[in-house]
Design a protein around this nucleic acid. Structure first.
Lengths: 163, 163
DNA sequence: ATAAATTAATTTGCATGCAAAAAGTTTGTA
DNA sequence: TACAAACTTTTTGCATGCAAATTAATTTAT
């Protein structure tokens, strides 16, 4: 079967598919987190925090927040729950007493050893599995999308052909 | 200054940048929602719910939940807040008394008329602004990433409105 | 040397988001 | 018809997530 599409129709199709693919990626990330939670009893953010501590050694709360790209007040809660389960400890920083030093406990390190990678790694894995040229092209296109979206910082009304 | 990078180092760089770009896209979506919230005093999900009601007429809570791809228990809360501000009303369905019929109030329709589209328009706008070849390449790469991430095939869900 | 500004972590308040269970309604079946 | 099963909404409980305010400690400026 041969169907002829106008150039704008083809483009619209690609846009729809690209949006669909982004949804699939987000869903895959979410599903992976849910599966991990079922498996080891830690939520996505909790495992992620442990994982960052495991790879980057003891960290202050702020440093951990920065690595997770989350607000410190959010990470405080995540750390509370991990501490309650003795997977990490808070210790005062003698250099700067405002700071708290977060370290894995032995139990935390054990859990981490048995745990799968956090969901972020799922994405990294996929990207590393792709041909370099593909990754480079994807990178260029994503950067452009991000730039175009950042230009429109303030809400504007958009109008679309059919929809 | 000339620095030689191995092929794997170059690839790793592209991977990092691609992940960074995805983060920027997610952040741009969030920033847009925040800007809308500042402008019209409605959160992203609240505007989204109003918008679906505006375009798809009166809906039951379940039907609205389905359109938003959110759990009914979540939408109950969103609807509560909109009802408290008289932007929509709950009415019993005489056909099936389990159901609740959600309708925009005049005030709700007014707010909607003055409001920008919900956040996903930002992304669509950016994609439509790109050269067709770029979109096609992006599409192909994203599909591959999604496939690689989907260890087991599962039905696609959504992270924002559409249709 | 001391006041002012900054910084780190926490607390509080609000809004998602889901799962599980409760309550009322309708449908299917024996 | 009676009763079980399924459906619709709400409630409850928990875990993010951010913004704004607080507290304590440190740095900067006067």
């Amino acid at each position: 079967m041969q169907i002829n599409l106008s150039e704008s129709q083809q483009k619209h199709m690609h846009v729809e598919e690209a949006v669909q693919s982004l949804r699939r990626i987000v869903k895959a990330l979410h599903d992976y987190s849910t599966a991990v939670e079922q498996q080891i009893g830690l939520t996505g953010p909790q495992l992620w925090a442990l994982w960052e501590l495991g790879r980057a050694g003891p960290l202050s709360l702020k440093a951990l927040s920065a690595r997770m790209h989350l607000d410190p007040s959010t990470v405080t809660g995540v750390v509370d729950r991990l501490q309650k389960r003795d997977l990490l400890v808070r210790a005062p920083d003698l250099e700067d007493r405002r700071r708290v030093i977060l370290s894995l406990t032995t139990a935390g390190a054990e859990v981490l050893k048995a745990a799968p990678h956090p969901a972020q790694s799922q994405l990294l894995h996929a990207l590393h599995a792709m041909p370099p040229a593909e990754v480079e092209g994807l990178n260029r296109a994503l950067k452009q999308v991000a730039s175009l979206m950042e230009v429109e910082a303030t809400p504007v009304r958009f109008f679309f052909a059919e929809e």
